[in-house]
Write a protein that binds this DNA or RNA. Structure first.
Lengths: 240, 240
DNA sequence: ATGCGCATGATTGCATGCAATATGTGAAAC
DNA sequence: GTTTCACATATTGCATGCAATCATGCGCAT
């Protein structure tokens, strides 16, 4: 299955918090974060085999914390570890992504009603501001910025539900399919429609119309994923 | 926060598949499974500190795979690892469990419509059979059996959605709160009502009435969790 | 040419050792 | 009696070494 090479650029990786000089006790987490960023940015593409030797040299740690990081990333669903044959970046089938998208849509629909019930107007304003920035990216033809902010908007809506467990699961599952997810946006016919849908979504959120928001998000997801799926299956030529 | 000491007895842990005699390459996963079982059975209670020494002796492995297992369980949300101070079983606050229950209810409501759309009648029969066994446990006063089968029924309904990602997330989140979740069932006044609700749920599932099933599951969850919460907060004396 | 078997080097899995940090204990000061 | 500090002990973090497994290349038979 195809995937989007450049869903995320290096600038997309938030610059890490000023690390404690000595990261004793945090090596594995630190390494996992570095590798996770490389996977999510596409620098380590699906199917890529991760050799312990090259990564220890690249990251300046020894094999023990590296192997611990592998276990973390495997638990997150980003790596497969095959005994005696090392780790490789998970490759998702079209069916896998279908299922993940269905789950994400479900999580968003759950979040919708909670967000309308509990989101603060500050949070809604934040979403609105992101939307404005996304439209600016669209106008400027900045695909990468558009993707990033789009992703951000959806996460922000989920966060409006004020349920950390929901936010955490959404974030993790979203990350798993990130590379596959946004290829549909390469079809620019979809762009303007997606922006319109987002405007409706924003309105429903601000007016706290939970059931409506739920349906809008569900429809938005289905629309977007339909297009994306066709691109991934090479039925439609992307505009690049 | 209180939790249920005996939500699961050792017999509850499915006897492991006949392991390959040599588990090279599977040590960490094996160890993680053993520790996970101990946490879910309550043998390792929330807050318990896990010393590497005692676990290596108890499990017959060395520290390297044990520490890898710790990382896996931390990623699953079952352990906290504090640098230089080892691992301990996660303790959830009342608010944490609230949020997790809200998420579980949401996941079930998403599953409901999918299950009605895609579940096979064999799967529905399986759920019905589990329900019958659960009622038998209720009549026999077998609390532990009742808890286990109840949990099983809910997982089975989710599995009817035929979405592996959804099933996986539901299983993981369900495990995280298992010890806290079923204390409400210790109030036997709740038992008969819960069984009645289950009968309605089963009916809606068999008749593939998605929206109805969704509402029934949501109500079932809210009812059950309300009672459980009061027990955990010591507002109601359990019947034990 | 093609496929198979085997030797050899590379890679992984895990045990162990050493350094850094935390913890426990008792003596001294107040 | 309580508190504080120093030291001894225990525990954790990570580097490294050895054994098991895998991958690669070559010779040999077909």
């Amino acid at each position: 299955m195809q995937y989007l090479q450049d869903a995320m650029t290096p600038e997309d990786v938030p610059e890490e918090a000023p690390e404690p000089r000595n990261l004793r006790g945090r090596s594995a987490a630190h390494v996992a974060e570095r590798i996770r960023d490389r996977i999510l940015s596409g620098a380590l593409p699906p199917g890529e085999r991760l050799s312990e030797r090259s990564l220890t040299e690249g990251l300046g740690v020894t094999r023990t914390p590296l192997r611990e990081a592998f276990k973390i990333l495997e638990a997150e669903g980003l790596l497969n570890i095959v005994p005696n044959r090392g780790a490789q970046v998970v490759e998702l089938s079209s069916a896998d992504v279908d299922m993940a998208m269905e789950l994400l849509a479900g999580l968003e629909s759950v979040a919708a009603e909670l967000a309308c019930a509990r989101g603060t107007s500050e949070q809604f304003a934040e979403v609105a501001a992101l939307h404005a920035r996304m439209v600016a990216c669209q106008r400027a033809g900045d695909l990468v910025g558009y993707f990033r902010i789009n992703q951000n908007i959806h996460q922000n809506i989920v966060d409006c539900a004020h349920n950390p467990a929901l936010s955490r699961v959404y974030r993790a599952e979203s990350a798993r399919v990130r590379l596959y997810r946004f290829a549909g946006n390469r079809v620019s016919a979809r762009w303007s429609r997606a922006v319109m849908e987002h405007e409706q979504i924003l309105l429903a959120l601000q007016q706290r119309q939970g059931p409506l928001l739920r349906e809008l998000l569900r429809a938005h997801h289905l629309n977007g994923w339909h297009v994306t799926r066709k691109v991934l299956d090479n039925e439609v030529q992307p505009d690049l």
